[in-house]
């Protein structure tokens, strides 16, 4: 992996679906160790941006470097260093919790995968259900397991695509605690970065070090949280996102 001060550098990146521009010359730079919260109305291009940055989709034009890897040239190299938590768990529902994590750990080449899986199951408090099929899990339990799956290879950058979607309040609380625990643990060792798409303004604001608002595929606001007055941001947020549609 290349050493770089930026976790993400995006320059004039666009994505076109047929006649529609999902992203329109998006540019921003996120330092390592930062937590970026991305806001925007439905259809603003938030998920498209996350999918491109996580190599699940190719941009139509422009360039981006993630952890020093050029997205177009070296997407394979980058995949070893990123994790993805979505509202979809990215798990095989007919396999057990342990089988899902072992499957992912072995694909990533994690040394001593059994030990790593046991550690992660303990972190997400699913050790007692390790042999149960994921299909029998509640939404909250599945989401906790999907966090463990995303962290199995110890990624340096974690993408979160509406991770709170469909969670009940108790599951949200557990998820928050878990996220906090991961951030505290890992920041002692190195600068793990996060990039989250969320419809929950308060949650996104609380977690973030940096904020970004997308509107009709364009960046209308990007800054450090400390540089932005909260009430100004809330006003901006409601003007952009409050409309409900891009």
């Amino acid at each position: 992996m290349m050493t770089t001060a930026s976790a993400i550098t995006v320059q004039k990146m666009s994505k076109v679906f047929g006649q529609r521009k999902a992203l329109d010359k998006v540019s921003f730079e996120l330092p390592q160790g930062a937590f970026l919260s991305i806001f925007g109305p439905n259809g603003a291009g938030k998920t498209t941006l996350l999918r491109i940055l996580s190599t699940l989709m190719r941009p139509s034009s422009g360039s981006a470097e993630v952890l020093g890897f050029d997205l177009k040239e070296k997407p394979g190299g980058l995949r070893n260093h990123i994790g993805f938590i979505s509202h979809k768990p990215l798990l095989y529902l007919d396999l057990s919790a342990e089988e899902n994590l072992l499957f992912a750990a072995r694909l990533y080449g994690v040394e001593e995968p059994e030990q790593r899986v046991s550690e992660l199951l303990a972190v997400v408090e699913l050790t007692a259900r390790r042999h149960d099929s994921v299909r029998t899990f509640s939404r909250g339990m599945t989401q906790r397991l999907s966090i463990a799956r995303a962290l199995v290879h110890d990624p340096q950058l974690v993408f979160l695509d509406e991770p709170y979607s469909g969670l009940d309040p108790h599951a949200v609380h557990i998820f928050d605690e878990l996220l906090q625990k991961i951030r505290e643990q890992e920041s002692l060792e190195r600068q793990r970065s996060f990039c989250m798409v969320s419809h929950d303004m308060d949650k996104g604001l609380d977690l973030a070090t940096h904020l970004l608002i997308l509107e009709k595929g364009k960046v209308v606001l990007f800054d450090q949280k400390d540089e932005i007055d909260r009430s100004d941001f809330v006003r901006h947020y409601h003007r952009s996102v409050g409309m409900g549609v891009a």
């Binding site: 996580s54 190599t55 699940l56 394979g76 190299g77 980058l78 995949r79 070893n80 990123i82 994790g83 993805f84 979505s86 979809k88 768990p89 990215l90 798990l91 095989y92 529902l93 992912a104 694909l107 990533y108 799956r149």
Partner: peptide, 13 residues
């Protein structure tokens, strides 16, 4: 179902 294939596509293979 539940994005399992995407999980595999995120792996460097």
């Amino acid at each position: 179902e539940d994005g399992a294939l995407e999980g595999v596509l995120l792996v460097p293979l």
